[in-house]
Amino acid sequence: MNMRKLQRIVTRNTFLVSLALMIIVVTINYTLQSNLFELRVLSNTMRTLLPLIILAVGQSIVIIGGGIDLSVGTMVSMLVALLVTLITPESTGAETALAILLACGVGMLAGALNGFAVAYLRLQPIVTTYASSFIFSGIALLLLPRPGGSIPRDLMRFYRSTPGGIPLSFYVIGVLILFWVVLRSTRYAQYLYATGSNSEAAYATGVSVQLVRFTTYVWSGLFTALAAIALALSTGSGQANIGDDMTLDSIVAVVLGGTALRGGQGGIVGAIIGVIILRVIRNIIFFADVPTWSQTLVNALIILAALAAPGLIGLARRAVRKWA
């Protein structure tokens, strides 16, 4: 395979660089933590990661469409609060299913609020979703003034299960990727990328830019709801700020996965890889016996280095060209 062909494949599949990075960090992690791939450990790790993975998937759709969603974290808090107040150990199967459906509906509605403000009122995404994050945070506090709730054991056991010897989270990730493959083959995906890369050109060629932008936030709301469901099943209870810190992680994960913040490029596979990289770096620091007080710094420096790497390569390439 010649260089040009390779380059084209990489530019078309931006997650490949991140995939290489993920393989490197996972290998380092494995040398430090030999039981990493034991079913129990793998299942535990992926179970705690799944909420952020699902959230980052929603975030990438918004970012590809040229927006950003700073409200996903408090939206998770709000929906977890909703779920743990509705689902109790006495709930029947039908009641539980209804609560989950309701959470999805509320998530999509909250996303629609963001989408309406950004797409139709033409408000700036960063400040709009920042403002709406207060509303969701307030509702979370209203629903769940004190930490609490108890998700039925059976549900939590189901979330921990490993059907066919594979952790449940892998099936979920498989479904997410399948969803993405199907979505990418639709005309909607073309409109999505067109809107994100050049909204004026997309508008000129007849793409309903406003509608596409609106839908990205509805997707984000739906995925936020799914993330909230996973988080509720994982923790079994909730508190009013349980998801607040996930917003920035979801954005960093998307960028680590090779999706550009300016939009029009990237995909959800990168976001999934980005979340895994984030977590594995933390794992490595823990198992490498980095002193407690230095862990935050080392973690931040590695992430910064990973984010700077493409820029450094570009800078080096320009320098080489200047010399050649």
Partner: peptide
């Protein structure tokens, strides 16, 4: 809780 909700609405 109401303070947060009102703040969000006013900001919007």
């Amino acid at each position: 809780a109401y303070q947060l909700i009102i703040l969000g609405i006013i900001l919007l």
